[in-house]
Nucleic acid binder design. Structure first.
Length: 559
RNA sequence: GCGCGAGUAGCUCAGUUGGAUAGAGCGUCGGCCUCCGGAGCCGAAGGUCGUGGGUUCGAAUCCCGCCUCGCGCGCCA
């Protein structure tokens, strides 16, 4: 939005309302009418004043309009409509002139500073190192990265964090599974342990381990103690975790996601954080012994039942290190933290927050914030895909990237709200035509680039102060207004943590761009028209590119 | 049974925090290529916003009941 225009109109509205005897604290809201025939901006101020002033909305609207002086704001016409809306129609030339702000801002157009440099930690993916990343992790990667980018664009200092559950029973099962594969290589029958992992990648890791030890599986098995805690077992454990972490890193790299910090669960034990947390909770009187286990009174903090912290066997349940982990986030200076997780983890939300509250550390009750996403179904050739060759029982991120490319995977994960279930149509994501929304948007950008390429014009050389009065066509005015909405849209999407708003916006903007491009020519028009349209083309190119960048998608100059 | 989420066009889904006649894409039907990329554009048909109440100038949006679907309800993570 062109904030200069809206601020100007709102100030005038406030002044006029006070003249009528309205309460001091009024803050007139301006919004874009759904129907363009109702003008560029509208306000419902008269309706909201109807009650305090005890008069009819239309009557109030009439008196407001009589007192308004908004010509200096660029308003050409004011009218009252419907139940009492006041509609503002802007002067087209005034609107067009705002394009200069887009060109001047360039890559920074759309950025703002609501975060004021405050720190926020965005944790996402956080997959256990027990296998390749699956489609759910892919949705998290796309969502988390885009949310982080949105926060950066609105002035937050963002840390992207990955939490590794590298301790616990899962890793022991994983190690046992690899040992079972080593035995298989040595000629023994395959016996994958209960709770073990069946994917092809386990066999590949076993092969690589054997290779590093000389290549003879029988010799490897004789090397040492294969029971958990034994020397060889621990060596294999370290090898497996390192292999899978490296593989996940490669997958994330293929997806274009980079993390600033990797936090290892095991460090919470070695640093004593888990012990400290348990002690603090016990000292604070929030725990009790029952049935040989240690319980936390999470019911004091709106949980529906108390939870076990320390099991009868002396080990901790998963949420204890989770609480300790979030204490470190708070202590590391992140007084805002956002966790992106699958909705199947939603039961942890109450527990982690309850644990933090129980510590009486003055952590806000809503800390950390959660963005939960629903499940993903992958469709291919009209049927659901459930099997990946590598992972066995699930489709991996790498599979998707290999099938349709990084940009399409990202867009498809981001075009829907996180809390609705997502059907990932592989065939649609593969098509390179209008049917495919990501190509449609990228194509709009490429076409604009094509104008400059064919015209032999350096887009960076376009002068923002070019006269723009020639941009009077309806398609041009629509596109301009849309482009000017971008900063407000970014702000809203960042506040709501909803990247899909950017995706929808980009699709609509691309549509307006295609329409304009199709209907109006740029090159070889009379100079005033061509120059003005070059500014518009440049502005649209900037907005499309900046929007795509927020989603982690490239803006190709040609396709 | 309890908790969380969802239910909008044949299909997949938007809907900018309560606004005016409910919006896209796909699919269907019908049009548009001497011109910067037709990888595009235009038009048509298609709706009881799951359902019944409530709140108010005004509800897809907020509140309550009910129905359907998904996820979770472990001393697993």
């Amino acid at each position: 939005m062109n904030s200069a225009t809206t601020d100007c109109i709102r100030a005038e509205l406030a002044r006029a309302a006070r003249d009528l005897g309205a309460p001091d604290a009024i803050d007139p809201a301006l919004e874009r009418p759904r129907d363009p025939a109702h003008g560029e901006w509208a306000t419902n101020l008269a309706m909201t004043l109807a009650r305090p002033l005890r008069r009819k909305p239309r009557e109030i609207a009439q008196q407001l309009v009589e007192r308004l002086d908004v010509t200096a704001c660029g308003v050409a016409q004011v009218e009252i409509a419907g139940p009492g809306f006041i509609n503002f129609r802007l002067d087209p030339a005034h609107t067009a002139r705002a394009l200069a702000t887009i060109l001047r801002a360039g890559d920074t157009y759309g950025r703002s500073n609501a975060g004021a440099g405050r720190e926020v930690n965005v944790e996402f993916v956080s997959a256990n190192p027990t296998g390749p990343l699956h489609v759910g992790h892919g949705r998290q990667a796309a969502l988390g990265d885009a949310i982080a980018s949105l926060l950066e664009a609105t002035g937050w200092k963002v840390t992207r964090e990955f939490y590794y559950n590298d301790g616990g029973a899962q890793i022991t099962n994983l190690t046992r599974s690899v040992i079972a594969r080593v035995r298989e290589l040595a000629g023994e029958p395959l016996a994958i342990p209960e709770g073990g992992y069946h994917g092809e990648y386990i066999r590949e890791i076993a092969e690589r381990f054997v290779t590093t030890r000389g290549g003879d599986p029988r010799a490897v098995l004789r090397e040492g103690d294969l029971a958990p805690g034994g020397a060889l077992f621990e060596e294999i454990r370290r090898f497996v975790v390192a292999e899978l972490r490296a593989e996940q890193d490669r997958d994330l790299q293929a997806f274009g996601v980079r993390f600033d910090t990797y936090f290892l669960e095991s460090s919470l034990y070695t640093d004593g954080q888990v012990e400290n947390t348990v002690r603090a909770l016990a000292t604070g009187g929030r725990t009790y012994e029952h049935d040989g286990a240690l319980w936390l009174r999470t019911t004091d903090f709106s949980d529906d039942k108390d939870r076990v912290m320390r099991k009868r066997d002396g080990t901790y349940t998963y949420f204890v290190p989770d609480v300790a982990y979030h204490v470190t986030k708070w202590d590391r200076g992140y007084h805002r933290a956002i966790n992106v997780q699958g909705a199947d983890h939603h039961s942890t939300v109450t527990r982690v927050r309850a644990g933090l509250q129980a510590l009486d550390m003055d952590i806000p009750p809503g800390y950390p914030e959660y963005v939960l996403h629903q499940m993903v179904t992958v469709m291919r050739s009209g049927e659901e895909v459930k099997i990946s060759k590598r992972a066995g029982s699930y489709v991996t991120v790498r599979d998707l990237v290999d099938w349709v490319g990084r940009d399409a995977v990202r867009y498809f994960f981001l075009m829907r709200r996180g809390d609705s279930q997502l059907v990932f149509d592989v065939d649609l994501a593969r098509t390179q035509s209008e049917e495919n929304p990501v190509y449609y948007i990228q194509m709009a950008h490429a076409r604009l680039s094509g104008i400059f390429r064919v015209g032999g014009i350096d887009p960076a050389s376009i002068d923002p102060d070019t006269p723009l009065e020639a941009l009077v066509e309806p398609e041009e005015q629509e596109l301009i207004k849309r482009l000017l909405d971008f900063p407000a849209l970014v702000t809203g999407a960042a506040e709501a943590l909803e990247p899909q708003r950017i995706a929808s916006y980009l699709h609509e903007t691309a549509s307006l761009t295609h329409l304009w491009y199709h209907k109006h020519h740029v090159l070889n028009e009379p100079a005033p028209i061509m120059n003005a349209r070059l500014v518009l083309a440049r502005a649209a190119q900037i907005v499309l590119r900046n929007g795509l960048a927020l989603l982690g998608i490239t803006a190709p100059e040609r396709m």
